[in-house]
């Protein structure tokens, strides 16, 4: 293996583009860690603003309350690494937006809150973007139960979460568990990007 393999990997990741649909608990944390890992281009979309309650688990700060999430997240990513290109779209995504905004992305991350939005993006990618990988989060409410969180690969759709834990008064969303699933999504993205890279550069790991 070459000595500067980590640097080669970062160079490669800096050329990759990842789309993130939704910038709440899943999307904000996933985006931040993809940025830290070196992914060079991010396309983020959300229609919401930061509220004080969001600070309980989303990657924003007190002084960002009232800002659009996409603008606050872009600022936070640029504070970590100003060389990362962040395209921020302030809108509630529909099927045609997904096709348009994420067409140039290597991988799309589903980071919506509501199940019907999750279904919409899964169907859009399956129907209209069949070659695209979609990494989704499903079942992450409550606390504990780290051991039942898992990844299920359904062809190009990758499902992260326990697939059972619903948000309810007795099982609210909590920062650690949402954060774990957000990072499972980010980790799957890196794995997919690296699979492609290693396939094309077999000599590097010999």
């Amino acid at each position: 293996m070459e000595k500067n393999f980590p640097a080669i990997v970062r160079d490669y990741l800096s050329t990759c583009t990842v789309g993130i649909a939704g910038c709440g608990g899943l999307g904000s944390t996933c985006a931040i860690n993809l940025a830290r890992a070196g992914v060079g281009k991010l396309v983020i979309a959300d229609f919401d603003i930061v509220t004080p309650e969001n600070l309980e688990r989303q990657y924003y700060f007190r002084d960002q309350v009232g800002k659009l999430k996409v603008h606050a997240l872009k600022d936070n990513i640029e504070r970590i690494d100003p060389s990362i290109s962040v395209k921020a779209f302030d809108l509630k995504l529909c099927s045609s937006d997904i096709m348009e905004l994420f067409a140039g992305c290597d991988i799309i991350v589903e980071a919506f809150d509501r199940a019907e939005m999750k279904q919409m993006i899964i169907e859009t990618t399956l129907n209209d973007m069949p070659d695209k990988h979609l990494v989704t989060g499903c079942g992450l409410a409550g606390w504990g139960k780290t051991d039942i969180l898992r990844v299920e690969r359904l062809g190009k759709v990758i499902v992260c979460g326990d697939q059972v834990s619903e948000v309810a008064p007795e099982t609210p969303l909590t920062a650690p568990r949402v954060g774990i699933v957000a990072n499972m999504e980010a980790n799957e993205v890196i794995e997919l990007l690296m699979q492609k890279f290693l396939k094309e550069n077999e000599d590097l790991t010999k």
Partner: peptide, 10 residues
């Protein structure tokens, strides 16, 4: 056949 439920939360 596998049937998965999509669950709110994110």
């Amino acid at each position: 056949v596998s049937v998965f439920h999509l669950i709110t939360g994110g």
